[in-house]
Design a protein around this nucleic acid. Structure first.
Length: 830
RNA sequence: GCGGGGGUGGCGGAAUCGGCAGACGCAUGAGACUUAAAAUCUCAAGCCCCAAAAGGGCGUGAGGGUUCAAGUCCCUUCCCCCGCACCA
């Protein structure tokens, strides 16, 4: 009989069909098993899947399959983040409708994912451009509007000239558009819809401490982004005026050291203050110049500090001292109140500014370790210390004084405890076509009128021509735009903008629990059952985009009463990128490795195994063609080993007495239990499948090394078959097709998808005999073989008695003998 | 500047608790099989120095320390990556 060769092209479609026909991955709603909800951040249907997708899905799929074999009811859904600009840009370029383009991309990518054999419940698939889905975006929007969480405001918003639309703050990365890394974002004064994420800023920050399943760096990035700071608002009266300058400070304890004030050039008070002053023209000129400057540069710490005196003074409310009021480039209107009290002795910026413009410096916090003197200071003392020259607070610790001075300010009516956040409300209007229409109507008489709930969905109309000329394309569709006001019945216009696509991704993973619900966004009962998400995997690039928006959205839904969860994700994992020759794969670099080609050359199992084996999952992976071939060889070796022994394995069964096992059989059995232990541990806790796969290779090597004679006696056969089946079952979560094939060859009629995960026994995994290295003064000089249960004392005696050791010790004195059971012996000699 | 992560053979990496550094693989070299090649199998291999060999020495960015014992802990320092950055 000709030996059967490993042919993935024959095996893979066969099992993919079997899984679909057997509905192996569809969630059983009646199941009483414990739940496990895992998914990868859904994909944007851009045309083809790339290696990053393969990596993400391979990782999640291994866990999903493992959990299923462990007896969990696993929800592993896939969907499409289908609204967005690439579809619209394709429409402009190729005159193909965005929907047609998107549906084609989805069909193609779905087929590509299916070729890779991921254990997905495809019955739950949806795309965010499905009206059954985006209808609920609109519904949530109306609910938020009712509660004042969605509001309209005119302000300076980020504008990407490439995208021809506005962007949220989160979508501006280093001053550039998140989608166009070299396109500078401009500011435009526009009236836009905002979602009040700031209402949740405090909770979003506070709950970070509870997100124990989040990576530290993600928590940190979110904490930075939210930017909570605790302090006080203080009003500084303006001399010879009824106006006050409100400031925010985190260091009210230094207020006696506040010697001047600085306003942002945009500050509305500037004009009032300088009106009629001799400085007026110059100051206003300065403000105009700074305002024209590039915002990105202005807000950089490297920028030279520049300011101008307004000619006016404020009064320090605690010391009644006159403080000159300045305007300077480094104060920004967007943070705090757009004005600062300057304490040059205790703030580095203020220190530098005071030095440059010869403004007074007053020391009010003394360093307890090393006494400070004004003339000797080369930088501000920004730490806590003991207050000096601070009236009744002198001698108090600066830290403690903060609370008391805030109380005093409150009593005196010139200040109040306050918390400021860096995070701003989420601007969600987009002047583009391919998104969820904002369900709002503008009526000349009634103002802004929400679309009544019963009129939802507001269906995105077909637009036939995409010019890319800019402006909301929907504004050019009269049958969409012109509408009767729901309130007064008069002539009105629909909002022509669409929602930010990050709205779509803010709650899509809730919808998977109940994807076909037509009367509600989802049933709360089902959410209660499935949430939180047990494992969520995606790139770090969403640390403060999608991951903060969806936390906000969840809390908003909770307050709406549609869910009970506070946080959607229990465990989050960021996987590294896939590179080629050290660079990100991209069309322009021409270094793209096409997953389809890899599958055609080696099969899905090889691709999946390689991508998991090459590096630990959080690291960047540099694609290595030769190493891929190596993985194929490994699978081939396993397959060959099974085929070679399949004839006897098929009919073999039975258990044997411990005593009838030979040493090599026992050794193989031990290796098997050790391997199961290692692989289970990685799947359970670490996701370091590079190590799991290495362990399986070791087991396979051990099996191949088994002497032919061992495979003739029943003990050897029993252990070999056991090991073989354990290996196949473990392999099935990483390389499911070849595993199913081998499982069938060995004689199983049920599929591995319903098989149990192999168990290990701590006792059988333990070594019976251990080789213990003997060190003399920390250097290995010999080895002894002892049984695992030997006493410490005996090990010591045997070590000292070893001839090699004796010759090393020679006539030196043994000072100490350290015996680490099951590890080593260290003999200290002098 | 602040915060986080990292630096281990030719390469990717392993070492989960302070206990044999280099598992597993890629590439490489030698051999077997073959007319030949491919495939496959076997073996070798951290580096350097001394040595014919046995053997010895050195070795986890660098320098110090703690310890019987350090890739792992502590201090100093260099380099790389990521995030934030005039935040009042």
């Amino acid at each position: 009989m000709a030996e059967r060769r490993y042919d993935p092209h024959q095996i893979e479609p066969k099992w993919q069909r079997a899984w679909i026909e057997g509905r192996d991955f569809e969630v059983d709603p009646q199941s009483t098993k414990p739940k496990f909800y895992t998914l990868e951040m859904f994909a944007y249907p851009s045309g083809n899947i790339h290696m990053g997708h393969v990596r993400n899905y391979s990782l999640v799929d291994a866990v999903a399959r493992y959990k299923r074999m462990q007896g969990f009811n696993v929800l592993h859904p896939v969907g499409w983040d289908a609204f967005g600009l690439p579809a619209e840009n394709a429409a402009i370029k190729h005159q193909i409708h965005p929907e047609v383009w998107t549906r084609q991309c989805i069909a193609n990518m779905k087929q590509q994912l299916q070729r890779l054999g991921f254990s997905v419940d495809w019955t739950r698939e949806f795309a965010t451009c499905d009206v059954e889905y985006y209808k609920w975006n609109q519904w949530f929007f109306l609910k938020m509007f009712e509660r004042g969480l969605a509001y309209r405001k005119k302000s300076a918003v980020n504008w990407c000239p490439q995208c021809q639309t506005t962007l949220a703050n989160e979508q501006v990365v280093g001053g550039c558009c998140w989608r166009h890394e070299d396109t500078l974002v401009e500011l435009r004064e526009l009236e836009q819809w905002f979602l009040k994420i700031t209402d949740y800023a405090d909770e979003l920050d506070a709950y970070l401490d509870k997100l124990t399943g989040f990576p530290e760096r993600t928590l940190l990035m979110q904490r930075n982004w939210i930017g909570k700071s605790v302090g006080a608002n203080i009003d500084f009266p303006v001399e010879n005026s009824s106006s006050r300058i409100p400031v925010f400070t985190t260091r009210i304890d230094t207020i006696f050291g506040a010697t001047y004030m600085v306003l942002a050039p945009e500050h509305p008070l500037v004009a009032e203050l300088v009106a009629g002053q001799p400085e007026e023209k110059q100051v206003l000129g300065f403000c105009e110049r700074i305002k024209r400057e590039d915002k990105i540069n202005r807000v950089s710490a490297l920028q030279e500090k520049e300011g101008i005196f307004t000619g006016r003074y404020a009064i320090n409310p605690v010391s009644a001292e006159r403080m000159p009021v300045w305007v300077a480039n480094f104060v920004v209107m967007e943070y705090g109140t757009g004005a600062v009290m300057s304490v040059p002795a205790h703030d580095q910026r203020d220190f530098e500014f005071a030095l440059k413009y010869k403004l007074p410096v007053r020391l009010v916090v003394q360093n307890q370790e090393r006494s400070l003197a004004l003339g000797e200071m080369h930088e501000a003392f920004v730490e806590d210390g003991v207050l000096v020259a601070s009236a009744e607070f002198s001698g108090r610790s600066s830290r403690e004084a903060r609370t008391e001075m805030t109380a005093k300010a409150e009593r005196g009516g010139f200040g109040k405890a306050a918390i400021h956040f860096r995070i701003k409300d989420w601007g969600v209007s987009r002047q583009r076509y391919w998104g969820t229409p904002i369900p709002m109507i503008h009526c000349e008489h009634c103002g802004i009128v929400p679309v009544p709930e019963k009129d939802l969905p507001v269906v995105l109309p077909k637009v036939e021509r995409f010019t890319g000329a800019g402006g909301s394309p929907l504004a050019g569709v009269p049958e969409f735009i012109n509408v009767q006001c729901p309130k007064c019945g008069g002539v009105a216009r629909r909002d022509s903008d669409t929602m930010d696509t990050f709205v779509d991704s803010s709650w899509y993973f809730f919808r998977y629990c109940d994807p076909r619900n037509s009367t509600r966004s989802f049933s709360q009962q089902l959410i209660d059952h499935w949430f939180p998400i047990d494992l969520y995997i995606g790139g770090i690039e969403h640390a403060i985009l999608h991951l903060i928006y969806s936390r906000f959205w969840t809390k908003m839904m909770r307050d709406l009463g549609v869910v009970k969860v506070d946080e959607p994700i229990a465990n989050l994992f960021h996987l590294g990128m896939v590179l080629k020759d050290g660079a990100v794969m991209s069309k322009s670099k021409g270094n793209i490795v096409d997953p389809d080609e890899i599958v055609s050359d080696f099969g899905a199992d090889t691709a999946r195994m390689f991508i998991l084996f090459a590096v630990p999952p959080e690291k960047e992976l540099d694609w290595d063609e030769a190493a891929v071939a190596g993985m194929f060889k490994f699978l081939q070796k396993v397959f060959r080993l099974v085929v070679q022994n399949v004839d006897w394995m098929k009919g073999f069964s039975g258990t044997l007495q411990e005593s009838s096992l030979t040493a090599p059989a026992k050794a193989l059995r031990r290796k098997m239990h050790q391997t199961i232990k290692r692989v289970s541990n990685d799947l359970e806790h670490r996701l370091h499948f590079n190590v799991s796969i290495a362990a399986m290779m070791e087991l396979n090597n051990k099996m191949s090394d088994m002497d032919a004679k061992e495979l003739e006696n029943p003990g050897g056969r029993m252990v070999f078959k056991e090991s073989c089946e354990a290996l196949i079952r473990m392999l099935s979560v990483f390389a499911p097709h070849i595993a199913e094939e081998m499982w069938e060859l060995v004689g199983h009629s049920e599929r591995l998808t319903v098989a149990a995960w192999p168990e290990y026994s701590e006792a059988l995994a333990a070594e019976e005999e251990i080789e213990i290295p003997i060190q003399i003064n920390g250097k290995v000089r010999g080895r002894i073989l002892v049984s695992a249960d030997v006493s410490e004392d005996e090990i010591k005696q045997r070590a000292l008695g070893d001839t090699k050791v004796k010759s090393w010790v020679g006539d030196k004195t043994v000072v100490k003998v350290i015996v680490v059971p099951k590890r080593l012996v260290n003999i200290v000699v002098k």
